[in-house]
Simulated assay, not measured.
Amino acid sequence: MNRKSNFPIDFVVTWVDGNDDNWLKKRSLFDEKNADDKTKTRFRDYNLFNYWFRGVENYAPWVNKIYLVTDNQIPTWLNLNHPKLVWIDHKQIMSEINLPTFNSSAIEVNLKNIEDLSEHFVLFNDDMFLNAPVKASDFFWHDGKPRDSIGLNAIMPVEDFDHVVANNMIIINKKFDKFQVIKSNFFNFFNFKNGPLNVYTLLLLFLPRLTRFYDLHIPYSILKSEFTTVMSENNDLYELTSRNRFRSIQDITIWSVRYTQLAKGLFKPRRYNFGKFYDLTKTEIIVKDIKNSKHKVIDINDSDVISSQEFTELVYDLKNAFDIHLKHKSEFEL
């Protein structure tokens, strides 16, 4: 099967250097008492971002453009002259009245404003890495539908972010009837590629509303036209999220776009274990995954139980693991 696609597929990745003095000073100017960042872990920089680019060059050479979205920050080692790379400052996609922002949800709901962004794009965070060769059809099927895995899930409130998930689901339940969604997508919901997600769906099948879709926490394939439509139809929530400088229980996220694609059946089923979500407490397992390329994409999330000293040691272990397959500089590096 051809690794390329008949249509362009872009990658979009957001990045922040939480150690940057200028960024820290800017952040300190704003009231953080209502901010949903109880720890510094959300902004700790792994200093592994060069491996993200090495992974793209080695494992997805077919990508059309890479849009790097930052708050006027550029990695010192980055080659901005690479023909596939486009650097996007927040000012290019958000109203100045809403800047600066330290709210990842606000940034992501505005990615639709990237000039020349292709209809088909994949959204990465800077802690999501390609871990093995991937084909264009791993992200978008030949007919242009996003690849995804579907399963029902429930909101089990633990933290403030669960309010945001509920906000996304309000959008979905106002627009879609649960049983019509399942009827129209029966063989997507109950598909061997969904693995254990089939069990979650079965257990939640008879509840009257959609409680949540299962979130895999890996790069998401997004149709720009659906993205634009969802934000337009929910403009008040979009504008409110854009104004919130820090994460808020009032926010919506780009997940509302993914949920809409799933509810409409605008996707082609993909194996649930295509990617894997980890946090740094599982570093030993992550290192094995990287060495063996067990999953094609991995998300390495920080953890607030990891001290600064432990963080440095664990990131060093990750760097050594990445060096096994991605030791050599990419053309994205100076």
Rank of each mutant, 00 (worst) to 15 (best):
D17K: 06
K174C: 08
D36C: 09
I170V: 14
N113G: 02
K174L: 12
F187W: 11
D21Y: 07
V134E: 00
S184T: 10
K276L: 05
D160N: 11
V13G: 06
V199I: 15
S221K: 01
F246E: 04
S5C: 11
F11L: 08
V122I: 15
H142T: 14
F129L: 03
I107A: 04
L318A: 00
E96L: 14
N273F: 13
L266K: 14
N34L: 12
D89F: 10
P61G: 09
L111N: 02
R271W: 08
A166S: 13
A35T: 05
T312E: 15
D37M: 07
Y220L: 05
L152N: 02
V86F: 10
D162H: 15
W255H: 13
E108I: 03
F30Q: 05
K112H: 05
Y67Q: 09
K183G: 13
S221E: 02
P208C: 02
F161L: 06
K65V: 10
P157F: 05
D37C: 10
N58V: 08
Q73S: 09
K84N: 15
V297R: 03
P100T: 04
D215G: 03
T312D: 15
K268R: 10
N125H: 06
H163N: 14
F11P: 07
I324V: 15
I150E: 00
I66N: 09
L117N: 04
Q309C: 01
K25N: 12
K40L: 13
K33W: 10
P219S: 01
K26Q: 14
S28A: 15
L205G: 04
T101L: 08
N273Q: 11
R209F: 15
K26L: 12
H217S: 08
P269H: 09
P83Y: 06
P8V: 02
I290V: 11
H82G: 08
H142N: 06
D160S: 12
K112G: 06
N234F: 04
P61D: 12
L318I: 01
N110Q: 06
D138Y: 02
N47L: 08
N185I: 03
D236S: 12
K294F: 03
N2P: 13
R209D: 11
S105K: 07
D45F: 01
T253D: 03
I150W: 00
W15M: 04
L202K: 07
Q180T: 13
K264C: 12
G144D: 00
N125M: 02
Q73F: 11
E333W: 06
H295W: 04
N234I: 04
Y272G: 00
Y278H: 12
S248H: 08
I324N: 01
T211I: 01
V134W: 00
P219Q: 02
F332P: 05
W87T: 12
P133A: 00
F102C: 07
F49A: 09
V13S: 10
H295M: 00
E159Y: 15
